[in-house]
Amino acid sequence: MADGRQQAHTTWWFLTRVPARYSLGFRMDLAFVLRSPGLAIYYLALDAILIPASGATTFLLAERLTGLGSWSVAQVTFLLGYATLVEGILAVAFTYNVSHISRRIGRGQFDHLLVQPQPLWLSLLSEGFAPVTGGAAVAMGIAILAWSITRLPLDTDIAWWGFFLANLGASVVAVLGAMFAWSSLAFWAPVAAEEVATNVHEALTTLGVFPLDGLGTVLTAGLVTAVPAGLVAWLPARALLGVGATATPLWATPAAAVALAIIGAATFRVGLGRYRSVGSSRYTDFGHRR
């Protein structure tokens, strides 16, 4: 009965499991869509409309004013496409329970993660993978970006695309880092903080589609650190397009993302220690939630 389960696996062994997890996520997501095609089309259409619509205000303002500050209309469009793609990647790879991590902690559902025979990082990396239902946002993001790039005088060589991908990944990591750092509050305040992840995500999505140039130093600093909406699209787009009088380093967003990832992982680790110590008492013996 115990078979091979007695042995301890290495991190490398768990890494080799990732493709199988993603394949499972794809199968489940596809089956979900195919089971109810009408509902799926509704979801996809809604995503395709709503996600870019979140940047409609910025776009209309830019169009009306023939640009925003030092940003041309095409640059603003690039920023919006970039933000949509970041949102799409989050919707594809980190949806479900991962995007509601504070709810999971606050409601004691974290217990289910802890009884799975895989490291937490693997659970969090793989269980929010929904490439079909999240795909619409990615498609929209790519379409908007492609359209804007054709209108921009960019020298898109391999190096530029390399920086583009690095910044794109960094933006996703920055959002996740901030979400996990703030969500760690739920380890201490399970009821009050159970929706923190949703709130942080909404704040970043809402503010992430605006060029933040012209804001005061303190506010700008806050928007690239504590609530890193500036890392969703503004700072990386600024660096990639060379917008502004002073050039933004191409490594700025990746560096900030690394810092946020470290902070997010560290606070989450401390919170996890607390969870190990006090557990969750949200459910009574009779199954009611306090």
Partner: peptide, 20 residues
Amino acid sequence: IRDRLRYVSRIGVCFGQRTE
């Protein structure tokens, strides 16, 4: 706790009030 991964692969836990 220390051997979590090895341990949980050998046990089954069912919380009656919460579904997996």
